[in-house]
Amino acid sequence: MRCLLVEEEVHQFSNLVKALSGEDVSKCYQCGKCSAGCPIASEMEILPNRIIRLIQINSKDTVLSSSTIWLCASCETCFTRCPEEIDLVRVMDVLRRLSLEEGYRCPEEGILRFNRFFLASVKNYGRVHELGLMMKYNLASRQPFKDLGQGIALFRRGKIPLRPQRIKGMDQIKGIFAKSKPFLEREASGGGGR
């Protein structure tokens, strides 16, 4: 059994999430509609409503090491239907960044790797070079022939340019990557709207 009320104040984690996302998870009364509509729910070990619950009871480690936060597809179904209008997508974004920032192991390595390679491509060219991204990803995942059939089929239809396009304003893109910080502090918004 885990005791909730240890030395830390029980609102510590929810306050942090509120400060970084502007979303007040204490409004959640656990109706479960987010999980009910989540397209990825069947792949999740911890359902979205439970992520919110865990934030409410200060279970930071469980949340930040969960695969759920990485499996969220940002499809916005939960936010659209949430009776309390909690922007769960924004909360998930903040949880992902917190998880990285605080050095939690990401249980969905592939998703994280893809995201990193994607952004690396943007950083290098200003745009995404899909072929390069896929090759890099497959090599790093040690499955070089994954989706090969599909890849060849796309290639044969002239849909995958071999060379990346590089934009002119690369200095600006580099600057953006250099200057961007992961978090924006926010004031809690009543309706939680974007």
């Binding site: 974004d93 893809f114 995201n115 994607f118 952004l119 745009r127 910080k181 992961p182 978090f183 924006l184």
Partner: peptide
Amino acid sequence: SCCGASPGHMISEEL
């Protein structure tokens, strides 16, 4: 240039 898509906001809001 690229809008950043999902990987962008997953890693940095400012980015």
